[in-house]
Simulated assay, not measured.
Amino acid sequence: MVDIFDVIADRTRRDILQLLLERSTDGQDGTSVSHIVQVLGASQPTVSKHLRVLRDAGLVSVREEGQHRYYSLQTAPLDEVDDWLVPFFSVDPPTPATLPEPAAHAADVVGRAAASAKHAVTAALRKLPGR
């Protein structure tokens, strides 16, 4: 199984994901390898290697049209990263020593829900026309 943290640790792969995110919010139906090469200024073999890693991790999907391949962002695998990060978003997280167990659990659940809602709203706003 692929460790999503290892996959996104590479700067080039993060740049590819960012580019695909920007293109998807602009209403593009996939991005060609040649466009990624042009924007990143990387070689085609390098970009293809990174796209293979991203595809194997489920972070991108590919659509083939003749000899061209168009890549699109798939965000579901990033849920693992989101789940790990959410507890860190709390400004002053409660500690088990300061809250009884049911309250600590409730605070954790509410914090995760709030961070996930913020993420969902932000993603939805990015998809609005003119953004």
Rank of each mutant, 00 (worst) to 15 (best):
M1D: 00
D3T: 03
I4S: 03
I4T: 07
F5H: 04
D6A: 09
D6N: 08
V7P: 03
I8P: 03
A9H: 03
T12C: 10
T12I: 11
R14S: 02
L17A: 10
L17T: 12
L17Q: 11
L19G: 01
R23C: 09
S24L: 05
T25L: 02
T25G: 04
D26N: 15
G27A: 02
Q28V: 13
T31I: 01
S32R: 04
V33Y: 03
V33E: 03
L40W: 01
Q44R: 15
P45I: 09
T46R: 14
T46Q: 14
V47F: 01
S48C: 13
K49Q: 14
L51C: 10
L54E: 14
G58K: 03
V60E: 12
S61V: 04
S61D: 15
V62M: 12
E64M: 07
E64S: 12
E64Y: 07
G66W: 11
G66K: 12
G66M: 11
H68K: 10
R69T: 02
Y71G: 05
S72K: 00
S72W: 00
Q74C: 15
A76H: 04
P77R: 00
L85S: 00
V86I: 14
V86T: 10
F88N: 12
V91G: 06
P93R: 11
P94K: 01
T95G: 11
T98Y: 08
T98R: 14
T98P: 08
L99A: 09
P100H: 10
P100I: 05
P100S: 12
E101N: 11
V109K: 12
R112E: 14
A113Q: 08
A114S: 06
A114R: 13
S116F: 00
S116E: 04
S116K: 06
K118M: 14
T122Y: 06
A124L: 03
A124G: 02
K127I: 01
L128Y: 03
L128G: 01
R131I: 11
